[in-house]
Write a protein that binds this DNA or RNA. Sequence first.
DNA 1: TCTGCTAACACTTTTGAAGTGG
DNA 2: ACCACTTCAAAAGTGTTAGCAG
Length: 433
Amino acid sequence: MYHPRELYAPLGASYRLRPPQPGGDIGFPASLSEGYRYSDLDTPKLDCFLSGLEATPRPLAAPPPLPPLPPPLGGESTAPASASEASRLLPGVSLSLENHDLWKEFNSVGTEMIITKAGRRMFPACRVSVTGLDPEARYLFLLDVVPVDGARYRWQGRRWEPSGKAEPRLPDRVYIHPDSPATGAHWMRQPVSFHRVKLTNNTLDPHGHLILHSMHKYQPRLHLVRAAQLCSRHWGGVASFRFPETSFISVTAYQNPRITQLKIAANPFAKGFRENGRNCKRERDARVKRKLRGPEPVIVEAYGGDGPGGPCDSTLAGDLPEQASSSTEVPTPPCGGSSAEAYLLHPAAFHGAPSSLPTRASSFPEAAEPLSRPSSYQAPFLELSPGNGVSSPGYPPAPPASAFAPHFLQGGPFPLPYPAPGGYLDVSSKPLY
DNA sequence: TCTGCTAACACTTTTGAAGTGG
DNA sequence: ACCACTTCAAAAGTGTTAGCAG
């Protein structure tokens, strides 16, 4: 494993990010905010996806200086987003959170996400609508999760409170939407769901799930990268987004009973725990009593469900029951083919190895280029539009989606040196401890 | 004793193979 | 032979809970 500072020594201090600005998150002490540094956000992180080859591809030879670190996540933006930079890279691109209301409801209580050794899905999942993409160009859609602050949290019976410093930063991993790469038309056709993302607290996780510390506050980020293929050293622009209402605290067991209630009410897989479900507290207690008395009689009556509406696997359809997609349209492959087609056409892009391997080099001429110092790019900060695309100038910009090079790929957690769409990418920049 | 984590559990939904009919 | 549809079992995703470790 390499650290970017070792590989990119020449970049030196230009990649230093300034500390977060005061005035941050509600409930987050300024002292902790002041003391925290996004020490790893300068990791060249997404370079791998910057593939080629847009109409006017350009090699990443002269990295512009990274923008200063934005204010602490969740806080008020004291420095407005750099719209000009954003438009220079991916002009006009905007995202809106489809399930904004649900997220808002959870956020008002204090969202908690279960993390397990085996990996647990996020609920609610990030489901967004995209506009402003070039319908013909191809894009990668990525999701990662970054710490909101430098604190560890503790449930104090009624609310979350910081209790000490955060654990050391874990390996940064990126979830690649399974449809990637796809055309702008594809991404804009219907809401894009990231419901398959899994969170784990297993630092040795072999499945490539996003690794988090328990009792820490995190913020999901979405990245759109204009690129024709998964891995290249060329790029056509990138835009990063975050929605403050999607921040959450990772836990191994729910702390706030109100969150539990919300999850049970909204998640179809937890239907059994609802008031009328067989797994609700009343039924469970009764079952335990019956068990103590003797064998439980077989219940023949079918459990009345709420009808269909569970998470849908398709990107093109809704992923959440409370937002049943009205679209029954059969997904059509994006221009140039679906991810599966892309796989068939260019298997080396998905199963390929670092550019030194012949399989990839044969399929992707750009991989045969000499491995000069990978360059970084400047990620735009965009204002977010919560729900239905309604603009909200109060939304702070996302932290920069820093670039990274294939060097940072960790083969370990992945069966493949390059992750397939739908997989995860380990972009750890430094050893765990 | 307290806090946090894990594994087992019962339940539901999703998925995909197998079967059926046009 | 092909396609669309249905059925069904297995897999996967839920929160709960008891027990364990530090």
